[in-house]
C-alpha cells in the first residue's frame, strides 16, 4: 500500500561552484510524514526548496539530477512551475502570514489561481482553517489581521494558507522552531492529522519531534544523504555510525 510520490534521483545542488547536495537519491512515500534531520548547514532546507523549485529564485543555484513528483521530472523542460507550487505547498520556519486579514491570507492562493466566486472562496477558507485546526479559534474574526494572532496560531494560519490550494505535498521547514512547547504540540498533532490527506516532508532539528511525528527519517550530513529508513529503526538502531553519533548528540 506504500506508494512513492516524490523520487529524488541523483540530485546535486550547487550554489555557484559550492556543491551543497551530493547525489541525493531516495523516495518519499505518499501520505507519510518524512523527516529530514541533520546538523546546521547540511542542506536540508536546500533539498526541501528543490522539491517546489524555490531555488529558482536564487540566481547562483543550479540543480542537477531529477526529482520526480508523481512520476514526472519537475526539472524537465516545459514544466509549469506555478502548477508545481500549487501542488507542493510550503510552510516556513518563521510564521509569515501576509499583512492582511485572516480570510485574505487563506484566500490568497485560490484567488491567484482564478477562483473569484465569494461562496466558493468562503468554503475553501473554512475548509482550510478547519484542516489546520484553527477554525474554532478564528471563525468570529476572519476579517482581522492575520498578524494579530499568536505565533502558534499564525503558523497554523500559514498551514491553512498552504493547504488552501489543495496541494498533494506539504513541505515544512522547521515549522515549530519559533514556537513554545504548547504551540509546538498542537502543530505536531496537526501534522499527524494532515498526513491522512497530504504527503508531508518536514525539516526539524528536534530529534524527538522527528521520532514522534514521522514515518521515515532521512539523515543529511554535509550534503550527503547518510541514511534513510523507517523512523523507529533510525532512532533505535541506525545502520550508520554517523547517524548513531548524531541522534545521540555526540556531535551536532
Amino acid at each position: 500500500m506504500e506508494k512513492i510520490l516524490v523520487s529524488s534521483r541523483g540530485v546535486n545542488l550547487f550554489y555557484d561552484s559550492a556543491r551543497v547536495l551530493k547525489d541525493i537519491t531516495f523516495d518519499i512515500m505518499e501520505k507519510q510524514v518524512t523527516a529530514l534531520i541533520g546538523p546546521s548547514g547540511c542542506g536540508k532546507s536546500s533539498f526541501l526548496r528543490c522539491i517546489n523549485r524555490m531555488n529558482d529564485f536564487i540566481p547562483s543555484a543550479r540543480v542537477e539530477g531529477e526529482i520526480l513528483v508523481g512520476g514526472s521530472d519537475i526539472y524537465a523542460g516545459g514544466v509549469d512551475v506555478i502548477a508545481l507550487r500549487r501542488n507542493v505547498g510550503m510552510v516556513f520556519q518563521k510564521p509569515n502570514p501576509f499583512p492582511m486579514s485572516i480570510y485574505d491570507n487563506v484566500a490568497y492562493g485560490p484567488r491567484l489561481h482564478g477562483i473569484k466566486q465569494k461562496d466558493r472562496l468562503d468554503d475553501i477558507v473554512k475548509q482550510s482553517l478547519v484542516g489546520a485546526a484553527l477554525w474554532d479559534e478564528v471563525k468570529d474574526k476572519l476579517k482581522t489581521p492575520g498578524t494579530g494572532l499568536s505565533g502558534g496560531q499564525q503558523q497554523r494560519l500559514c498551514i491553512a494558507r498552504a493547504i488552501a490550494t489543495e496541494p498533494e505535498i506539504l513541505l515544512m521547514d522547521e515549522p515549530t522552531s519559533a514556537l513554545d512547547p504548547m504551540a509546538t504540540a498542537r502543530i505536531e498533532e496537526l501534522v499527524r492529522e494532515l498526513k491522512k490527506r497530504y504527503t508531508v516532508v518536514i525539516v526539524t532539528h528536534n530529534m524527538q519531534q522527528a521520532a514522534r511525528i514521522s514515518d521515515r527519517t532521512a539523515f543529511f550530513l554535509m550534503g550527503d544523504l547518510v541514511e534513510y529508513d523507517a523512523t523507529p529503526k533510525m532512532f533505535t538502531s541506525p545502520e550508520d555510525k554517523r547517524t548513531e553519533d548524531y541522534i545521540t548528540g555526540r556531535f551536532g
Binding site: 530529534m207 524527538q208 521520532a211 532512532f235 533505535t236 538502531s237 541506525p238 547517524t243 548513531e244 541522534i247 545521540t248
Partner: peptide, 9 residues
Amino acid sequence: FQPLGEDLR
C-alpha cells in the same frame, strides 16, 4: 534525556 539510538538501546 529522551534518549535515542545507542542511549535508548
